[in-house]
């Protein structure tokens, strides 16, 4: 199953883990399963309208993912990290 790399500040909701093996065949499925397993993760990752928090980005490998239907192969990696491009982006 895909491995998810989390932003360090999320470790308090994942029991200290910054990498997790989360099942799912697409980015959307992996995120949904992650949030189902760790309920506190939802508000860290998503805005109220369900979109990704604006100060975060998703990377499949080293390519930014905007389409959550992007397939993730078993053994692939999904990285959730802070957006690098300047700009305070309010929640």
């Amino acid at each position: 199953m895909p491995k998810v790399w989390l932003p360090s500040p999320m470790r308090d909701v994942t029991g200290g883990q910054h990498t997790l093996d989360i099942p799912g065949k697409t980015v959307r499925e992996v995120l949904a399963n992650l949030m189902a397993r760790y309920p506190g993760a939802r508000e860290r990752l998503l805005r109220e309208d369900g979109r990704l928090q604006p100060h975060l980005v998703l990377l499949a490998g080293d390519v930014q993912v905007d389409d959550w239907e992007t397939p993730l192969e078993p053994g692939s990696e999904l990285v959730i990290t802070a957006a690098l491009g300047g700009g305070c982006r309010p929640a």
Partner: peptide, 23 residues
């Protein structure tokens, strides 16, 4: 202050963002 992957501060300040990487 916004901490990506963390939360948002409850009091205003001059710190817009706190990013953290740890391993």
């Amino acid at each position: 202050t916004v901490t990506p992957g963390g939360g948002k501060a409850e009091q205003p300040s001059n710190v817009a963002k706190h990013i953290q990487y740890e391993r």
